[in-house]
Every structure is written in C-alpha cells, then in structure tokens.
Simulated scan of single mutants.
Amino acid sequence: MPYREPVRTAARRPRSTASSTVRSALGKAHGAVPDPVPVFDDGTPAVANLDPDLLAALREAAADAADDGVEIFVNGGWRSPEYQEQLLREAISKYGSAAEAARWVATPGTSAHVAGEAVDIGPSAARAWLSEHGAGYGLCQIYRNEPWHYELRPEAVEHGCPPMYADPTHDPRMRR
C-alpha cells in the first residue's frame, strides 16, 4: 500500500462548502496532490511540471534512497498561481493574518512551487534520508519550520547546503 502521511498544511484543514467547491475546481491539473505520489509519476502535474533539473536530481536521489530501502514521495510540487492563491487564502483564514500565514504559504508571485522550483517530500523516513544525503544531489531543505520543503541548490554538491531560513518570512526572495 502506498505511503499516505497526513500533510500538515492549510490545505488539509477542514473546509467550508465554498472552499471545497473552489478546491475541486483547482484540483490535480493545478498542482493539487490529494495523495502522495512517487517522484517518477509523470501523470501528475505537480511532479511533471517541476523544473527539469530539480526533477532529475530528485529522481536520482529517489533511486539511491530506494537502494537503502527508503521510498520518496511527493506531497506537493509545481502549483498553478490560482492554486497557490487558494492555499494562501486558506492559510490566512487558518492563522488569522497574512503576516502569520506568510510563515507557511508564499504568494503566487514569490512561491518557488509556482515556478516549479520546490518540492514537498514525505514520509518522515524520506525526509530523514534527504536531510543526510540530499546535498550530494543539490537538494536542500530551505526552511527550518518546513522539513518537507526542498529546493535545488547545485552548489551544495561541492559546498553543502546553505544555512536554512527560520521560515519563509526570513527569505529575501519572499520580499519581491
């Protein structure tokens, strides 16, 4: 049976009927990943629309992790701007303010997910494996508060991953 760890994001909180209607309109084609998928799933836009270099590094890491008995799944990847906006609205509702929501969800204009340059990984064994071995593939955890969020940093192969930001509000890319 495939891995199914609950995702702890604004997208997984109980929703109103209005939110559910929008969510169904902005489903898989917009980057939603209702159930974790393997990194080799080319039929899921959240995976297939990732930056090619990120996807190649992720797949190489996943193949090596499998040799160690660890399976890497994608809980989130590429997202459309509309889907990212929906996640942001849900986070504002959940956390009570845009400032607090910004610790967890970026705007469509700043999100690495919208650019296809970020992937959310599970389960915890996969995150632990990437935490130990990811730099060798250029895959780095970017935010201390999001152990599932990885981005490609090719220089990490030789120099190791850069220091993590506490959360996205400390990332200068989020101030565009």
Rank of each mutant, 00 (worst) to 15 (best):
residue 2 P to M: 06
residue 3 Y to K: 07
residue 3 Y to L: 09
residue 4 R to K: 13
residue 5 E to A: 09
residue 5 E to V: 12
residue 5 E to H: 07
residue 8 R to G: 11
residue 8 R to A: 15
residue 9 T to I: 09
residue 10 A to P: 07
residue 10 A to W: 07
residue 11 A to V: 07
residue 14 P to T: 11
residue 16 S to T: 15
residue 20 S to A: 13
residue 20 S to I: 08
residue 25 A to M: 15
residue 27 G to A: 15
residue 30 H to E: 13
residue 32 A to Y: 05
residue 33 V to C: 08
residue 33 V to L: 10
residue 33 V to R: 03
residue 36 P to K: 03
residue 36 P to R: 02
residue 36 P to Y: 05
residue 37 V to C: 05
residue 38 P to M: 12
residue 39 V to A: 14
residue 44 T to V: 14
residue 44 T to K: 04
residue 46 A to C: 11
residue 47 V to P: 02
residue 48 A to Y: 11
residue 50 L to M: 12
residue 50 L to T: 03
residue 50 L to W: 04
residue 50 L to V: 06
residue 51 D to W: 07
residue 51 D to A: 08
residue 52 P to D: 12
residue 53 D to W: 07
residue 55 L to N: 05
residue 56 A to L: 09
residue 56 A to S: 12
residue 57 A to S: 14
residue 57 A to D: 01
residue 58 L to G: 01
residue 61 A to V: 03
residue 64 D to W: 11
residue 64 D to F: 11
residue 65 A to L: 06
residue 65 A to D: 05
residue 66 A to S: 06
residue 67 D to C: 10
residue 68 D to C: 06
residue 70 V to E: 05
residue 71 E to V: 13
residue 71 E to D: 13
residue 71 E to A: 11
residue 72 I to L: 08
residue 73 F to V: 12
residue 73 F to D: 04
residue 73 F to A: 10
residue 76 G to N: 04
residue 79 R to E: 00
residue 79 R to W: 00
residue 82 E to R: 03
residue 83 Y to T: 03
residue 88 L to D: 00
residue 94 K to P: 05
residue 94 K to H: 14
residue 94 K to D: 15
residue 94 K to N: 14
residue 96 G to M: 10
residue 96 G to A: 11
residue 97 S to H: 14
residue 97 S to G: 13
residue 98 A to E: 15
residue 101 A to Y: 08
residue 103 R to G: 08
residue 104 W to S: 10
residue 104 W to G: 06
residue 105 V to M: 07
residue 105 V to E: 06
residue 105 V to I: 15
residue 106 A to T: 04
residue 107 T to H: 04
residue 107 T to S: 07
residue 108 P to N: 08
residue 108 P to H: 02
residue 112 A to C: 09
residue 113 H to N: 07
residue 116 G to Q: 12
residue 117 E to R: 15
residue 118 A to T: 10
residue 119 V to Y: 02
residue 121 I to R: 01
residue 122 G to L: 07
residue 123 P to G: 13
residue 123 P to R: 12
residue 124 S to N: 09
residue 125 A to K: 09
residue 126 A to S: 06
residue 126 A to M: 05
residue 129 W to F: 08
residue 129 W to G: 02
residue 130 L to H: 03
residue 130 L to K: 01
residue 130 L to S: 03
residue 131 S to R: 00
residue 132 E to I: 03
residue 132 E to Q: 12
residue 134 G to S: 02
residue 138 G to K: 01
residue 139 L to T: 02
residue 139 L to G: 02
residue 144 R to V: 12
residue 145 N to E: 13
residue 145 N to P: 11
residue 146 E to T: 10
residue 147 P to H: 07
residue 149 H to G: 06
residue 150 Y to H: 09
residue 150 Y to T: 03
residue 153 R to L: 00
residue 156 A to C: 08
residue 157 V to C: 05
residue 160 G to S: 10
residue 161 C to F: 01
residue 162 P to S: 15
residue 164 M to E: 04
residue 164 M to Q: 06
residue 166 A to I: 14
residue 166 A to W: 14
residue 168 P to H: 11
residue 169 T to G: 12
residue 170 H to R: 09
residue 171 D to K: 04
residue 171 D to A: 06
residue 172 P to H: 08
residue 175 R to Y: 13
residue 175 R to I: 06
